[in-house]
Computed example of a mutant assay.
Amino acid sequence: MTSGLWIIGYGSLIFKPPPHTEFRLDGYLKGFVRRFWQSSSDHRGTPESPGRVVTLVSLKDIKANKDLLTSVYTHELRHRSEFDDDADILEDDLKVWGCAYYVAPENAEFVRQYLEVREQDGYTLHNVPFHVTSAIPPSIQSKLKQSETGEYFLESSIYIGTIDNKSFIGPEEPLVTARVISGSRGPSGENSEYLLNLGNAIKELEARSSMKDYYLQQLVTSVLELSK
């Protein structure tokens, strides 16, 4: 018998959920940063002029790459010195707002196939813990796990464009990314629309805590400036 499906959204899935979702839980991922370092030739750009969409970069990859580390010190760890010991960077230091959707067993295979098409340009499927911050309906509490501290979390499917996929463009200055986004359009619409919709969605999530995505804020500001 097919089991139900949990799927995490950290990009367009936040403001454009997959079909047949029954519940949405807001929360965050630990040990990742969100970056517009994935080129898009099928949704927000074309093969001739790729746009930019988000992916996640893991703490393991960040520690192994000086350019990735510099970007993290510029945004997520802006309060620290770049000369701090990298070994002191913990998963709890890097958190990404997102959401998790639940799809009932009878619709799980349909949604899996839908996502395989939607996330095809360099993304692969992974399983990671998702930490829940929103109210949990009693009817689905049993579907979640609980840590020793009482925090609810779930093991969920997530699509990530890892640093070794063909569409990963690597570290890029936010202003350079903003210029690409401002001038790109694909079958799914304006690249800037994707960014601004995501920025608004994350702003709503940020209003509930002190956790901020300074990288995303800078990118949104730069694109708005370029549009004037």
Rank of each mutant, 00 (worst) to 15 (best):
R179D: 02
E155F: 11
Y152F: 13
Q120T: 12
Y102G: 08
A108N: 10
Q141R: 11
P138C: 05
T177L: 08
A178D: 02
I158K: 02
S156C: 15
K95F: 01
G161D: 05
T133P: 11
I158G: 00
K166Q: 15
W97F: 05
S167I: 07
S167P: 08
F153L: 07
Y101K: 06
I89K: 11
F168D: 08
L115P: 00
E151H: 11
S157K: 08
S134E: 03
N127H: 14
D84Q: 14
I140M: 01
E173D: 09
F168I: 05
F110N: 05
F130S: 13
V128M: 10
T124H: 05
V111I: 05
R80V: 05
Q146E: 12
S167H: 13
F130N: 09
E76A: 05
F83G: 12
E151S: 08
D92F: 15
S156E: 12
I158L: 08
I89P: 06
P174C: 03
T162A: 06
L175M: 05
Y152H: 12
G170P: 04
H131T: 10
R80C: 12
R78T: 12
I169A: 10
D85F: 14
E109D: 08
W97K: 07
Y114V: 04
K145D: 09
H79I: 09
A87Q: 15
Y123E: 01
D88A: 15
H126T: 09
A100H: 01
F83I: 14
I160D: 10
D121F: 11
K95A: 10
L77H: 07
L94S: 00
A87S: 15
Y159E: 01
P138H: 03
R118F: 03
V103K: 02
P129F: 09
P138N: 06
E106A: 09
L125S: 07
F153K: 09
Q146D: 10
H126K: 02
P137T: 02
E148P: 05
S81H: 07
D84C: 11
E148R: 08
